[in-house]
């Protein structure tokens, strides 16, 4: 008999095998319930606090930055200011 034919024959016999009785319904349901109830509820409060504090800090920085920007002077202004005045004369 050809090797492949003998393997086919072996497979044909093997397909008739009855696997052992396996019952997992109880364990699966228990596993699902455990997973569902043991899953920690996501608490958004700490995240909200961090987000709030960050927002306050950011607004303070923005406020200070705005006033800092307002007070910035052009360093070349001192050179050009007399010339502008001279043109007026």
């Amino acid at each position: 008999m050809d090797t492949m034919k003998s393997i086919e024959k072996l497979a044909q016999i093997a397909r008739q095998e009855e696997p052992p009785e396996i019952s997992v319904s109880a364990s699966v349901m228990a596993h699902i319930r455990t997973f569902r109830y043991s899953r920690p509820a996501i608490d958004v409060m700490p995240v909200s606090w961090v987000a709030g504090i960050s927002a306050v800090a950011a607004s303070i920085i923005l406020f200070l930055a705005f006033y800092a920007y307002q007070s910035i002077h052009d360093p070349y202004m001192n050179f050009f200011a007399p010339i502008q005045v001279a043109w007026l004369w």
Partner: peptide, 30 residues
């Protein structure tokens, strides 16, 4: 040759193949 013995033998033979080859032949034969 008992079906269980045949299945055992075929399972053993297929276990010597790489996983993708084993999968294809397992699904085809069994």
């Amino acid at each position: 040759l008992d079906p269980s013995q045949a299945a055992e033998l075929l399972h053993g033979l297929l276990s010597r193949l790489p996983s993708p080859d084993r999968l294809v032949l397992t699904l085809m034969y069994f």
